[in-house]
Design a protein around this nucleic acid. Structure first.
Lengths: 333, 333
DNA sequence: CTGAAAGCGCTAACAC
DNA sequence: GTGTTAGCGCTTTCAG
């Protein structure tokens, strides 16, 4: 195991000179630096577990959900956003795959090299919360659980997003709406964002005194066809649908088309999903954007602030914005 | 910054006892361990940049490609496989997003906490190769560049995969075949796996003395329609198609259907993609499986062996296997 | 089973 | 611009 003194000997300088030559923390003559670098290369030197006085590890861990029902591209967008933002703050990102679950967090927090933690796929009652509250390691959740006190959470305001979709449909005259949601297991887990969207959707429909139903739905063409048929059969007056299930968007549009339902002439469709997915769907969808990149960036900002000792608000909610595209129109006569 | 001596004082024991109580490297009485753990919790102690004699960081870095033309779900599968395998070897995974490129690798290798490196999205002439060869940090590539000596590479044998698809089609009697490939930028970058598939495909077609063409293709319904029309127009005798572009699979099947081409009656279709994608396509596809999980696992195995000093072979190629499904049949009369 | 003390590799004051 | 040296927080002998 080659150490800094070896490099120093080889380069004919003192250890501290090597240290400074590598860190750049004080000026070193070109000649000396060159010799040091040569020695480093020749010996294959790598700085070791930094001496105590050194800078912290500058690593933050990211707990990514990789379980049934989560949509991989969206999760990946979050992860990339977090990684990019972390780099901007001179941090690296440690990948913590779910399945390690609580244990993974404990491990990283206690013995791991991370000095901060970003947690995704938060449930309303999440088994990780007690640990996160107790941990000396600062953490930020992407997603807002039922009891966020003592934590730092950031998310799109999914409740408001659900309301926004309904308000939009009501403004167009629709009087019966349905929510085609995420796969059932997502609700079973009480995943925060999915539950809150349902709450907002239902509350807005009740407030407007219009009919509403909610349908968890697995992805895939088969499921899309089944749900489309069922909606048309069970709710003949249905003219407005909100989709909160990205991989289901195109299959659902197809299914309606096959059943002779035209969008937006016969049925208005609204989605809650990342903007590109809405824009590039078979029919460009009026949608509330899930700003994955901004959420990831915000989470990292909050985290680095927390790591530097500044207290952070328990909940940061981003206001939803609805973008009109081709999939919504006035209620048919 | 709370240190081990603080914990020791609080627990009324010596620093070394705290150290051993936490590492478990020598037996500690239950009573003492309890007191130590209590002190740790109360003070929020976290082990620091480990003392020099301590174990290595046990982190390996993963360079993931997040650029145009790569298919996110597949990349994510690799990443998850790598992370899981790494955990099995008691390592954590540091996410290195491309875009940092060569610089990212240099940083992690020189000052970063990683002690091993997995590189994805390898190009035939990859700018990172000289660095990887020179680095004291052991690395493994998923993908085989043109000159793999001095490196450690693992991949599916994409050349053989291309041949296998053609052989299968020829055995069914087809005499004109086309390859619908990855997006153009993938070939422009000279991405190794894409290029090698083309080589194998072309070589096999030549060997069988049958007509063959290759078409890079962007994803999306529009592009699929365009390429389908073009294939039918320019090659009237075409009856066999190989797709190597996962997000294009369904759109391409749709496009052919819209053009009145039945699969497999009029046209046989083969894919090179992960098994689930082939199985759940609109028409279940005869395919050569890209075993993402196994590749990720292998890469990590090779890497940990290398890190422990055992030399590793320059190239490990997994033999392709073709699974017949519903999309291929005899050449129509 | 525990403590004292001697390092570990590295950085940062301090001297010149 | 460089070397000397005193730590840093932690682990691991070495004694008991």
């Amino acid at each position: 195991m080659v150490k800094i003194t070896d490099v120093a000997r080889r380069a004919g300088v003192s250890p501290s000179t090597v240290s400074y030559a590598l860190s750049g923390k004080r000026p070193i003559s070109d000649e000396t630096r060159r010799r040091v670098q040569a020695a480093v290369r020749e010996l294959g030197y790598r700085p070791h577990a930094r001496g105590a006085a050194g800078a912290g590890s500058r690593v933050l861990a990211l707990a990514v959900p990789m379980r049934s029902g989560v949509h991989v591209p969206v999760v990946t967008q979050f992860a990339v956003a977090v990684a990019t933002a972390a780099r901007a703050h001179d941090h690296d990102v440690l990948l913590l795959t779910q399945g390690e679950g609580v244990e993974g967090i404990r491990r990283v927090a206690e013995t791991g090299p991370a000095d901060g933690l970003v947690v995704m796929d938060v449930q309303l009652q999440d088994p990780r919360l007690p640990l996160l509250r107790a941990l000396p390691l600062p953490s930020v959740l992407i997603g807002v659980p039922a009891e966020p006190d003592g934590l730092t959470c950031v998310d799109l305001d999914f409740g408001a997003a659900g309301e926004l979709c309904v308000d939009h449909l009501v403004r167009l005259g629709h009087r019966t709406v349905a929510l085609v949601g995420s796969p059932p297991e997502v609700y079973v887990r009480r995943t925060a964002f999915a539950r809150r969207l349902v709450q907002g959707f239902t509350a807005a429909a009740d407030r407007h005194r219009i009919g509403s139903t909610v349908h968890p739905c697995a992805p895939g063409r088969g499921a899309a066809r089944v749900i489309a048929e069922r909606l048309l059969r069970e709710q003949p007056t249905l003219t407005g649908v909100v989709v909160h299930n990205e991989p289901l968007i195109d299959p659902l549009i197809d299914a309606f088309a096959e059943l002779g339902v035209r969008i937006p002439d016969d049925l208005s469709l609204t989605a809650v999903c990342p903007a590109p997915a809405a824009a590039s769907a078979r029919v460009p969808l009026t949608s509330v954007t899930v700003p994955s990149a901004e959420l990831g960036t915000r989470a990292v900002h909050l985290l680095v602030r927390k790591m530097s000792g500044v207290p952070a608000p328990a909940v940061t909610l981003l206001a939803p914005r609805l973008t009109e595209r081709a999939s919504t129109g006035p209620r048919p006569a």
